[in-house]
Structures are given as structure tokens and as C-alpha cells.
Amino acid sequence: MFKELDPILHSQLRLAVMSLLIAVKEAEFTYIKEKTNATAGNLSVQVQKLKEAGYIEVVKQFKDNYPQTTCKITPVGVEAFEAYVQALQQYLHAGKG
């Protein structure tokens, strides 16, 4: 029985954001934008969706008088990401077999 791929994660930009955030403790919005080559508008929408799903935590604050948005993966996000990778592997193994 195949697990269904999480629709929140099965999207290019959201998956890219989650993969980055799993590899670091936390990252600023500018870092994610630079690494994903996404536009600020696109990225904001996808970050908001991940936040609404409870997969990431978003903290907005000021640093040296400039607004700073920091994102961090939540334990729910880690669990969802792991489940997503396991499901992917299951699909790929089935394809090989």
C-alpha cells in the first residue's frame, strides 16, 4: 500500500524551502530566496502555506533598523518531511521492482 505524497510538500518551491530548512537550524528569508532563486512574492506565498500547515515557524523582527524574517522547521515539519522522503523511496523502489 503506497502512502500518499503530502500535497503541501509535493510542490517544487515548498519542497526546496523545506529541504534547505532541514539542513540548517534556522535561516533568514534572504538566504532562502538566494538559494532557491525564487522571487520574493512567490516565496512569501509558499512560506505562508508552510507556516499555516505548521511545518515551519516564521519570526519577524527588526535587525539594525531593517525588517528580518527568520524561518525554522518545526518538529511537525521534520516528521512530515521524513514521511515524505520515505513515501518517495517507496514509490521509486516499486518502480524499480
Binding site: 518551491l13 525564487a38 506565498v45 518517495l88
Partner: peptide, 9 residues
């Protein structure tokens, strides 16, 4: 990067 592109496994 497109926002909603569906990916293969």
C-alpha cells in the same frame, strides 16, 4: 523557481 510545479518522485 515556479511556485506550484508538480514533481515526479
Amino acid at each position: 523557481m515556479p511556485e506550484e510545479k508538480k514533481l515526479s518522485e
